[in-house]
Design a protein around this nucleic acid. Structure first.
Length: 582
RNA sequence: CGGGGUGUGGCGCAGUUGGUAGCGCGCAGCGUUCGGGACGCUGAGGUCGCCGGUUCGAGCCCGGCCACCCCGACCA
């Protein structure tokens, strides 16, 4: 590629809308342009990076037996009704009508699509297990997209679906895929990507993991043990929260006029926050009963954990809902409340003599002890862990980190195959429902993530494996001393050697050329200029390092071939070192 | 959906008490320069987000709408 004709203005200044460094570089380097909120076009350099990421993903998916297919982005409503998701999924599913008034959706994921495809094609046990994947557009009408390509509405995703006869087989394959994912991220230049246990959210299923690139600008909170290998998304993380056991004292009703919040009551009574039990009300569980979450005063309810218990997204209760249970807002406790589901965090029972509401205006109780005063409530972990809480596996402490979710894997079970009537016959002619796994990677998000992890103030520092080009040639003053001719010849030689080359053939000042080269972030750079050419040499330089030197013109192509091969070999070695799924 | 902010040339921004739009970068031409974003001269490029209102006159005042950004809610 000759730079002269490369389409895209590169900017000197950080665009006003850029929030993350990767977002800024995406725009400054003319990799991508926003068309509408969360919808982007990719310019040539950006698309080259994306294609390379896709190629790595294809390679690794094929390696674990995947077969690539392509499903449509537009699906009919009926398919989504089969699984109940047409109703269950909210407004992020874009619905519209076609010419004949038929309801359609833009696929935000393809479980329905893939089961529709596979159920007519895989009726015999002899075909199992198998895995189907695609690299395809998804549309999710996110209420809020942000961060360049990190979180967008329209995006490209690799989504894979495996089908198994047994849970054990799925589990084995799940591990294989986890290793494949580690290899993908290592090959794309982010080997530090961590697998964390995660929530399965709207996908359903029990076991799920996310692949997180740990970075301060990430959207997810992750808890990581400082001693052992435990690491989990905060939505599911378990941990040891310190308890405050005492000998139980007698329940005592006290006058606490106007003290409606835990902060006010504990301050009024001069007791620490952890010596209170607080109540958080939610509208209903899956059976329509109001939910009272009971948690220690110094902790917060983790609504993701609660959502799994009550089988739906918790919605904070209206006052009328609370009153109906006999509880008094501001002075609430489980004592005396009825017709509701009470879920108490274990920390409430492990501490004694707590302050809690008396369900009567302006009164609280002192010395509340859960097992004595409210013995029959449901006990479940609903606490949001804090940095410093104990690791669930060892004596270590948990650290809070931020991460970008670049991939995820789920054990789906039979939720989709069953609701959509997929089955196969076994050796005895018996029908069975296949068990599914699914595996996603956001391609554009991955590009942004690598940019976020690998850049300096001048631009991205691409690993050779996904750089838009492998070699960048700068011709300094191409009109003088044969520089242009030598550079042109070098361009030909490098391409002859099978390398991907971007050739800056513009008659620009060196500063301009170098700044643009930095924004394109190509690993190996040749600088052809009169200075070194006088000795028959061209200069080389490695992006993002201080490494540089000179090489005779006629050896440059060979030098480049060797350097690039070596760079790939190092990356491949890193991928090969990934042999543990978790 | 709630709260906040911003819309002026490709990018970054200024625009006073209302008087018909400007700066830097970038872009085109010419000249001088020439190894980390040079300098001079000349030039092109703007329905001032949109609609309506007030006014002799609106980028500026008023009303409505839209878009984008940030925080929160939400998020396979």
């Amino acid at each position: 590629m000759r730079m002269r004709t490369l389409v895209g203005r590169r900017y000197k200044e950080r665009p006003a809308e850029a929030t993350l460094d990767s977002h800024s570089l995406l725009l400054r380097g003319a990799y991508a342009r926003q068309v509408a909120n969360g919808i982007y076009s990719l310019l040539h350099p950006g698309y080259r990076v994306v294609r390379k990421i896709e190629a790595i993903i294809r390679d690794e998916m094929d390696r674990v037996g995947g077969q690539e297919v392509l499903m449509p982005v537009v699906l009919p409503r009926e398919l989504w009704e089969e699984t109940g998701r047409y109703q269950a999924v909210g407004s992020e599913l874009l619905r519209f009508k076609d010419r004949t008034d038929h309801d359609m959706v833009l696929a935000m994921t393809h479980e329905e699509g893939v089961v529709h495809l596979a159920r007519h094609e895989a009726g015999s046990y002899k075909q199992y297990p198998f895995m189907i994947y695609q690299i395809q557009t998804k549309f999710r009408d996110e209420p809020r997209s942000r961060g360049g390509l990190i979180r967008v509405r329209e995006f490209t995703m690799k989504d894979a679906y495996s089908f198994h006869r047994t849970a054990e087989d799925l589990d084995d394959y799940y591990r294989e895929c986890a290793i494949a994912y580690h290899r993908i991220f290592a090959r794309a230049g982010i080997p530090e990507t961590a697998v964390v246990r995660s929530d399965s959210g709207m996908m359903g299923g029990k076991i799920a993991h996310e692949f997180m690139l740990l970075t301060d600008c990430g959207e997810d909170s992750i808890l990581k043990c400082d001693t052992c290998r435990y690491i989990a998304n905060a939505e599911v993380a378990e941990g040891r929260i310190p308890a405050f056991p005492e000998d139980p004292k007698e329940l005592e009703k006290i006058h606490t006029p106007g003290k409606k919040t835990i902060e006010d009551v504990t301050a009024f009574l001069s007791v620490p926050l952890h010596q209170a039990a607080k109540v958080v009300f939610y509208e209903s569980d899956s059976e329509g009963r109001p939910v009272m979450a009971l948690i220690r005063g110094d902790l917060e309810v983790n609504e993701s954990k609660l959502a799994r218990l009550v089988q739906r997204q918790p919605v904070p209760a209206e006052e009328a809902t609370i009153r109906k249970t006999g509880a008094v807002p501001g002075y609430a406790s489980p004592m005396g409340a009825r017709d509701l589901r009470v879920i108490a965090d274990p920390t409430v029972g492990e501490s004694n003599n707590l302050v809690t509401g008396a369900n009567e205006d302006d009164y609280h109780y002192r010395n509340f002890n859960l097992d004595r005063d409210c013995p029959d409530v449901e006990i479940a972990d609903i606490a949001t862990l804090r940095e410093g809480d104990g690791c669930p596996r060892c004596k270590g402490a948990l650290q809070m980190r931020r991460g970008i979710e670049v991939g995820n894997i789920f054990q789906l079970g039979t939720r989709y195959t069953e609701s959509m009537g997929m089955s196969y016959l076994d050796e005895n002619g018996q029908a069975h429902t296949p068990i599914m796994g699914c595996y996603g990677i956001g391609v554009g998000r991955m590009m942004s993530s690598v940019m976020e992890a690998r850049h300096d103030k001048f631009g991205p520092i691409w690993p050779i494996s996904i750089a838009p080009w492998e070699v960048h040639i700068n011709a300094i003053k191409p009109g003088e001393g044969g520089v242009g001719e030598v550079a042109g010849k070098l361009y030909d030689d490098l391409r002859e050697a099978g390398l991907e080359v971007i050739f800056d053939d513009r008659d620009e000042r060196p500063g301009v050329q170098f700044a643009d080269a930095d924004l394109l972030g190509v690993p190996l750079r040749f600088i052809v200029g009169a200075k070194s050419l006088a000795n028959g040499n061209v200069e080389w330089k490695i992006r993002g390092t201080d490494e540089k030197g000179e090489v005779p013109v006629e050896e440059a192509a060979h030098f480049a071939r060797k350097w690039v091969d070596q760079a790939y070999a190092e990356i491949r070695a890193q991928a090969n070192a990934k042999t543990e799924p978790f």
